[in-house]
Computed example of a mutant assay.
Amino acid sequence: MAADDEKSRSSHSAAPDDGQDDERDQDKSESIALPSHVAGSGTLDRLVDTARDYARAAASENTLKAYSKDWKHFARWCRLKGTEPLPPSTEMIGLYLADLASGSGPSPALSVSTIERRLSGLSWNYAQRGFTFDRKDRHIATVLAGIKRKHARPPVQKEAILREDILAMVATLPYDLRGLRDRAILLLGYAGGLRRSEIVSLDVGKDDTPDSGGWIDILDQGALLTLNAKTGWREAEIGRGSSDQTCPVHALEQWLHFARIDFGPVFTRTSRNGNKALEDRLSDKHVARLIKRCVLEAGIRSELPEKDRLALFSGHSLRAGLASSAEVDERYVQKHLGHASAEMTRRYQRRRDRFRVNLTKAAGL
């Protein structure tokens, strides 16, 4: 791997840069302050700082970044139209949604799911600024309903990485320190059905670092992962594999041993020559880049052009692969992935016997 692969690169932003005009909007947790009629003190000031820290933790880092980009895009759009984003105007928000859906100007039309996410981002940003708007207002609700009716499509799903794929992918990795780490990432992410953010947020032990998203306990029979996921805390059990070459727990043990990691982040960057593990936690973008690189090197879907192959796979391909490949009762997969409903689990199962339960015959027909 090239040395610069170890660095976290920011993904290209879909929102135009607003420049300095929106610097004041970047951290609205700062708006949490004492009431104007209360005199400050050392204790109260410390509590304000604590409350701001909790406010920043109200959503994941990736969600907050997305919401920040949503606000910048909307604020710039408003100013280009000769108005201001504050206070909220349901009429202007409705026009903004229509513009996103129609793709007027140089920007392409956005999907319904992205438009709904933008609306959620606006709602969150207005709330941080002490404003609210009624999403059921006719200027917003009817426009959004029309957009859904006219433009809604089934969600585009990433390709699942199946058993034969993951074996081919890990086979492309060398057995140097960096290769040991990346092998553990792929196998653990696949066997755990983990999101890429969950993989890189793991610590060796509980409460090792303030930014931890969970920790690992390695036991005789496997590894127990305690995760602070999107839907709350959950546990994922990863049993040992049938051979050391494909066992995620063995791969994890090998990485931790040779990297000499016994505290803090499980997956860290390595030195430029790849011979030493550093202290910095890996970015979740590394997982996505790793998957795409290994897909190409393993020759998966080689009948397609490289650009199309890269577009098919993402960090979620590991999670979908586990859901699609594990031949067990659906409820065990649902629990393992931390899904609230079986319907959500089925969205991840790219191949399954849809007619295993035949209600037609069960009804006597």
Rank of each mutant, 00 (worst) to 15 (best):
A2Y: 05
D5P: 00
S8T: 01
S8P: 11
S13P: 05
A14L: 15
D17M: 13
D18I: 11
D21A: 11
E23M: 04
R24L: 14
P35F: 03
G40S: 11
T43D: 09
D49I: 06
D53C: 10
A55P: 05
R79K: 14
L80D: 11
K81R: 15
P87T: 06
T90Q: 02
E91K: 13
M92I: 15
Y96I: 06
L97T: 01
A98M: 11
L100K: 08
S102C: 15
G105I: 04
A109N: 13
S111K: 13
V112Y: 10
L119K: 11
S123V: 09
W124Q: 15
Q128A: 08
T132M: 14
F133G: 13
F133N: 08
G146P: 01
K148L: 07
K148V: 11
H151A: 15
P155G: 13
A160K: 06
I161R: 00
D165L: 05
I166M: 04
L167G: 12
A168D: 05
A168I: 00
V170I: 14
P174N: 06
Y175M: 07
L177D: 03
R183F: 03
I185T: 05
L188A: 06
L188H: 03
G192D: 04
G193V: 02
L194I: 07
R195T: 00
S197Q: 13
S197D: 15
E198W: 06
I199W: 08
V200W: 00
L202T: 08
G205M: 10
D211Y: 00
D211H: 05
L219G: 01
N228V: 02
K230A: 10
G232I: 12
R234W: 02
E235F: 07
I238M: 04
R240Q: 12
S242Q: 14
S243C: 12
D244W: 04
D244M: 04
Q245W: 15
P248K: 07
V249N: 01
H250M: 15
A251S: 14
A251M: 12
L252C: 07
E253G: 05
A259M: 07
A259N: 12
A259E: 03
I261G: 05
I261H: 00
D262H: 10
G264H: 06
F267L: 01
S271V: 11
R272Q: 15
N273Q: 13
K276R: 12
A277V: 08
D284P: 03
A288D: 02
R289A: 05
C294R: 14
L296N: 09
I300K: 04
S302L: 07
K307M: 09
R309S: 06
R309L: 04
S314C: 01
H316Y: 04
H316N: 03
L318T: 00
G321R: 10
A323R: 09
A326S: 06
E327S: 13
V328K: 07
D329T: 03
E330Q: 13
Y332G: 03
V333N: 00
V333K: 05
Q334W: 01
H336C: 00
G338P: 04
H339S: 02
S341E: 01
E343L: 02
M344F: 02
V357K: 07
N358R: 06
